[in-house]
Design a protein around this nucleic acid. Sequence first.
RNA 1: GCUGGAAUCGUCUAGUGGCAAUGACAAGAGACUGUAAAUCUCUCGCCUUCGGGCUUCGUAGGUUCGAGUCCUACUUCCAGCA
Length: 367
Amino acid sequence: MLKFDIAKKSGLARAGVIHTPHGDIKTPAFVGAATKATVKALTMKEMKELGSQAILANTYHLLLAPGTELIKEAGGLAKFASWDGPTFTDSGGFQIFSLPDVKITENGAKFKSIINGDKFEMTPESSMQAQWNIGADIHMAFDQLAKSENYDDMKDAMERTHRWLDRCIAEHERLKNDNEEQYLYAVVQGGIFNDLRAESAKYCASKNVDGFGIGGVFVVDGMDEMLQTVCPILPEDKPRHLLGMGQEPIDLFVGAENGCDTFDCVAPTRMARNGSLYTLDGRINIKNAKYKNDFTPLMPECDCECCKNYTRAYLHHLFKTDEITAKVLASIHNEHFVVSVVDKIRESILDDTFDEYKKTFLLRYYK
RNA sequence: GCUGGAAUCGUCUAGUGGCAAUGACAAGAGACUGUAAAUCUCUCGCCUUCGGGCUUCGUAGGUUCGAGUCCUACUUCCAGCA
């Protein structure tokens, strides 16, 4: 069983430590999205230096390239990517949601390769096998994230996710080896319907898993209420990962406040590549003409490599001339921004100043 | 000096009788939440009560119902010959 120590609780919120075979994660923590075993535009050294504690890769993408057997041969994801720290893998369930032409059957989901168009099927069993090959510390159960706002469709997807969870657990147990430690999170679904969310949380809570992912969240309007439904049902002594949330700082506050321990999101690095950068006063588009002559740091209060050494005018120039360094510096900043926001949330839980920090931060950011 | 060729939005470019005029880049702005994303969308002559109105394709004339497109002259540039 994955070891998770809670150091401090405050309402539903908690600060703790997840002990993985590749190291500890002090929670709440923001996990970097390393979909194809790399955080886009950043080296693992830069990820360490900006304060990232863990990364999350994607099973579907690594299955297509370079293949999960190769990652196993390389010694596992962390070694392959030269990441000295904890790792997660997402199951490929999100691709059911995001890719076109996905066919879902009871057995699994039929995908088309985005690389060469080859058709293949991913099942709960094959996702587990792939994740064991990849060798991340924490695996996600193969789930179905549905698009629908129709209750019956959502219920179908949730129930299938539950049946798939049982198959994931069985396959995970079968693949367990006494010499290896890899852990499985069940994923709570239910979309925008709180009664389904509650049902899914109860189902997942009843299973012998190491933690929980909460999925399909960004389709929800009012995450607060949904988390207040789900988290109290989940066992307190196991970690919870809020899948895919973190573009908006408020999501990190609301997530942590309601008992989520880890987060991942592609938005900070994607937005960085597109020139949308976080500051304490909200996001700015550094490509805008008004930054051409702005010789101040992107965010004076920030201690990342980008903000300590470069000006907005310089970043503006790098973006306008389409220099690779623009994306590197912007990614360092945005990733550092969300990582440090969550780190400060942790500190504020530990010293009982969460409410104050949340209020001050959000008031300024969304003024 | 002679003989050809060329001049279209900031730049390059499409266009050979019905055109406010093609495409690319540049410029201006927006989007992005378990990454098919170094991507995508919108604007890009002026005005508009969004119906439309007005002024445009080196300059000046001409032919025509109608000209960026045809004719004449001029200006500038390019190539070849002197």
